[in-house]
Simulated assay, not measured.
Amino acid sequence: MSTKTLADFDFETGEVLLLDKPLTWTSFDVVRKVKSALRIGKIGHAGTLDPLATGLLILCTGKKTKEIDLIQAQEKEYTGTFRLGETTPSFDLETAVDLVRPYAHLTDEEVTAATPQFTGLIQQTPPIFSAVKIDGKRAYELARTGQEAEIKPKTVDIKIFELTRIALPEVDFRVVCSKGTYIRSLARDFGTALGCGAHLTRLVRTRIGEYRVEDAFSLEAIEALRPPRPEGDRPARPERPRTAPNRAGLQYFAALQADALAAKEHQAHEAGETPAAAPENPPE
């Protein structure tokens, strides 16, 4: 955590604020929440994180919004997990598994040997479930309505792609890469190279340039700094609950979470215990 406290920031004049994005929140969800909580007039984020990714999201306020392009152009670092032997249309947990292939024949040496081909300047095709624009529409809008669209490959620079744990079918990794690199696409391409398919099951952005997730604030810390509403101002509208996975189009992830909760409840019932309450969805 940064030694600088939130009370030290002058958001209206301009600040660069590091946030640790929660799971299932879109980057826009976070911007809107911080804007509302701190009553900031001008705010934006420097680099989108997918709903199923967590970690460093950089917000710029006031005059610092002019630095957004410079910040998001910097080198990125990620850690996460691929699951071998299964593919999904979105290359992550947003959509259900559509193909299962054997992976048990692979050795650790064979898995590791597939990594060098994905370093340096490579051609990468973004996922159809992405914000890439096709004829004026976001690719994910077409994908979620079942429409097919062609996305052209682009050149990205992956400086480091290393495996930090191999426990098949799971493989943990660390990636250092350029702006515009899709780790979900790397999961797909890595699985294709191994002949068994793969998809991304966990992703954390740990760094953008010199900015690190260790120095980021949580949304709870932001909420704690919410200023009191001025006397006579209109009352705050009551917060209404929403299901974040559904809002983000994460039906498969929501189903996985429901299955996991049901399994815990069953185990607790068999053991005569009371299961812990499910975590609440992030507020509107």
Rank of each mutant, 00 (worst) to 15 (best):
G232Y: 10
R212S: 11
P227Q: 03
T206K: 02
F217K: 11
D215Q: 12
I208Q: 04
E210W: 06
L219H: 10
P238I: 02
I208C: 15
I222K: 12
R240V: 13
R240D: 11
P228I: 00
V204Y: 02
R229Y: 03
V213K: 01
R207E: 04
S218V: 01
L225V: 07
G232W: 07
A236K: 15
A198F: 04
E223R: 14
R234Y: 05
R237P: 12
A224H: 10
F217D: 04
A236D: 15
E239A: 14
R212E: 06
E231T: 06
R212D: 06
R226E: 15
A198Y: 04
A224M: 10
P230C: 00
R205Y: 02
S218W: 03
F217L: 07
D233F: 13
R212L: 08
A221M: 15
V213Q: 02
S218F: 04
L203S: 05
P230R: 00
D233E: 15
I208S: 14
A216V: 08
P228Q: 01
R234I: 08
G209D: 10
I208F: 01
R229Q: 09
R242Q: 15
P230D: 03
P235I: 03
P241C: 06
I222E: 13
L200S: 03
R234W: 06
Y211T: 01
S218L: 07
V213A: 10
A216P: 13
R234C: 06
E210C: 02
E223P: 12
E223T: 09
A198L: 01
R240W: 10
S218Q: 10
R212G: 04
D215W: 02
R237A: 14
G232N: 12
E231C: 04
E220A: 14
L219G: 11
A221T: 13
R234T: 10
T206I: 03
G232T: 11
E210P: 03
I208M: 12
G232Q: 11
I222A: 10
R240E: 14
E223D: 15
E231W: 00
I222G: 12
R202S: 10
I222D: 11
H199D: 04
R205N: 02
R234P: 14
L219R: 09
R205P: 09
I222F: 08
R234V: 10
P241R: 14
R226D: 08
P238S: 07
E214Y: 02
R202F: 08
R207D: 05
R229I: 10
R205Q: 06
R202M: 07
P241Y: 03
E220R: 09
E231N: 04
R229N: 11
P230M: 01
G232F: 08
P228D: 06
L219E: 09
R237Q: 14
H199R: 04
R237F: 07
L200K: 01
R242S: 09
L225C: 15
R240I: 12
R234G: 11
A198D: 03
E210G: 05
P228T: 03
P228F: 00
A236I: 11
E239L: 14
Y211F: 13
